[in-house]
Amino acid sequence: MRSRHRRPLLVPVLLCALVVFVARPSGASDGGDGIAGSRISAEVARLYEDAAVATEQYEAGRREAEAQRERARHLEGLLDRQRQDISVLHEDLGRIARAQYRSGGGLPVAARVLLADSPEELMRGQHAVWQADLAVNNAIGKSRRAEARLSADEARARAQWERLDRRNAELAAMKDTLQRKLEEARERLQGQADVSAAAGSCRGAVRLDQPESGLQDGWVAPVETYEMSAGFGSGGTRWANRHTGQDFAVPIGTPVRAVGDGRVVKVACGGAFGMQIVVQHPGGYYTQYAHLASAAVDQGERVRTGQWIGQSGSTGNSTGPHLHFEVRVTPEPGSAVDPVPWLATRGVHL
């Protein structure tokens, strides 16, 4: 069973800001392996956020353009009905003119005066003709004014969605460029992580520039956007017995969050878990974050709920990018409990 979650972005980003993001270089020469590792991790984290912003901007623009297209279609329908009404009025005017002609309405005024039985009859007939003419002329004028307004509205609506389409094409190109740069940076990040995991030695913490809005109270999911894959207790050839955690299918470089306040008791590389972090929480529980591409904390460091402690990857016994997340009663393997209900009792429903 898969589920997809995403918190909406809280701060809209202007188009010009996206241009700046795209213009950033995807690679730079670094002075050493440690500096290079820090820069590539930070670059992936930044591009990850930039790509999310670009996608959100594109989707919002696409929805807005579709709404404008629908408005233009609606106005076009109103115009068609308005033109039909004018055509009916023209036909009514023709019928009135023919009726006036048959009843003498088409006679000159002098002739009608001579043929009228009385002045009152003449005035009544003349008044009825004037009223009919006035009503028809007013209706035609009103309909034509309404048609002019609708035509102007339709033209504005069409111009608006055409502008939106052009802007969305620009946003789509930027989004694609950001995505390409992100994929290239992810490859470099995973390559460095594989070297560390093969050597069994992690480089120091790679600090990530996390927005303060990401820090929270209580508990959170270990990643913000994900699809759930292998669950706790499931079987498979990759595990000696049963799967001991919950896997989250996420791309390389996805920020990994501490699910709650705690202290880092382990940062290690190598082995089946690849690059991993273990955090101790109040109440005697431990959480593990494995197969990482980078670690953003050091052993002994205190962390807060929602803090970025690393980036997802595919190190160790892994067939593809994902986060392996465990909840344990001890810091070591073999004491895991099902993390899904454990998080649910703390208000986090995956």
Rank of each mutant, 00 (worst) to 15 (best):
L10G: 01
C16Q: 13
V20T: 11
V20K: 15
F21K: 04
P25R: 15
S26V: 14
D30I: 08
R46E: 06
E49P: 00
Q57C: 05
Q57E: 13
Q57Y: 09
E70T: 07
R73V: 14
R83P: 11
D85F: 14
S87C: 13
L89V: 04
L93P: 01
L93E: 13
G94A: 14
R98A: 13
S103L: 11
G125V: 05
A132K: 03
K142N: 06
A146I: 13
E147S: 09
S151I: 02
R158G: 04
E162R: 12
L164F: 07
D176L: 14
Q179C: 03
V195F: 07
A199H: 06
S201W: 06
G204Q: 15
D217H: 07
T225P: 00
S229N: 03
G245M: 14
D247M: 06
F248R: 02
R257Y: 14
G260W: 08
K266V: 12
G270N: 07
F273I: 04
G274N: 09
G274A: 11
Q280A: 15
Q280S: 05
Y285S: 13
Y286E: 00
Q288G: 07
H291M: 09
L292S: 03
Q299T: 01
Q311C: 08
G313M: 02
P321R: 10
L323N: 08
R328C: 03
S335V: 00
